[in-house]
Simulated scan of single mutants.
Amino acid sequence: MTRELNRILYVEDDPDIQAIALMVLETINGFTVEPCSGGNEALQKAVPFKPDLILLDVMMPGMDGPETLKGLRNFSELEQTPVVFMTAKVQPQEVQGYLNLGAAGVIAKPFDPMTLAQELRDIWDRH
């Protein structure tokens, strides 16, 4: 039996983008979302939050998405948690690079608020 996607740790440094995604994921689709505005915050909140999935911005000041992913993978509780990168850099070789880092999927920015939840569910189902 596969678990349903419910809890999403969402790491995004842009407050406007974060607000749109939160509205779509929480208010419209009923997910439980823990927003973080950077990698360090994600490393502090991730384990206690117990996310089903981690939605991670690639380009962030300080600790970027790939570095944050590496940090999150150091927690045994998060080794198997699927991670989805969100980025404007979606050339095929860039996407392949993120998948090689262990991402379950990549969502292009700017994302479509109407399809974001379904894209996450599709990646979750494939994972």
Rank of each mutant, 00 (worst) to 15 (best):
L69V: 08
E34K: 07
C36Q: 01
S76Q: 12
P92Y: 07
V24H: 01
D122S: 12
Y98N: 03
A19K: 04
M63Q: 07
S76Y: 09
P35S: 09
L25I: 06
T2N: 15
L116K: 08
Q91P: 10
V58K: 01
P66R: 04
Q91M: 15
N100T: 12
P92G: 09
V24C: 09
N100C: 12
G62I: 11
T2D: 13
Q44N: 14
L53C: 06
V33N: 00
P113W: 04
E79P: 10
G97H: 08
Y10A: 05
A21K: 00
P48I: 11
D122I: 04
Q118I: 13
M63P: 02
T87Q: 05
N6A: 14
K109C: 03
R3N: 12
M60W: 02
T115Q: 01
Q91H: 12
L43P: 01
T87Y: 00
F111L: 12
K89P: 03
F111A: 07
E67D: 15
L101I: 11
L22H: 07
E34L: 14
I54D: 00
K109D: 03
I54M: 12
M59S: 03
L120V: 03
T68P: 10
V58T: 09
F75Q: 12
K70T: 14
L43E: 15
Y10N: 06
K45A: 13
L56V: 08
D64H: 13
L55A: 11
P35I: 09
E77P: 05
M23P: 12
P110L: 10
E94F: 00
A103H: 02
L72T: 00
K50Q: 15
L99F: 06
K89S: 12
A88D: 11
A108G: 12
F85L: 03
E119Y: 05
M23A: 14
P35N: 08
M23G: 14
P110Y: 05
I107Q: 02
E94C: 06
V83N: 05
G30K: 06
N74W: 05
D112K: 00
R121S: 05
Q93W: 07
A117G: 11
M59T: 04
L116M: 10
P61N: 13
T68H: 11
G71F: 06
E94Q: 11
K109R: 09
D14H: 11
R73T: 10
P51E: 11
T81S: 01
L78A: 09
E26P: 03
G38C: 05
L9I: 09
V83D: 02
D13A: 13
G39A: 08
V11Y: 01
V95I: 14
M23W: 13
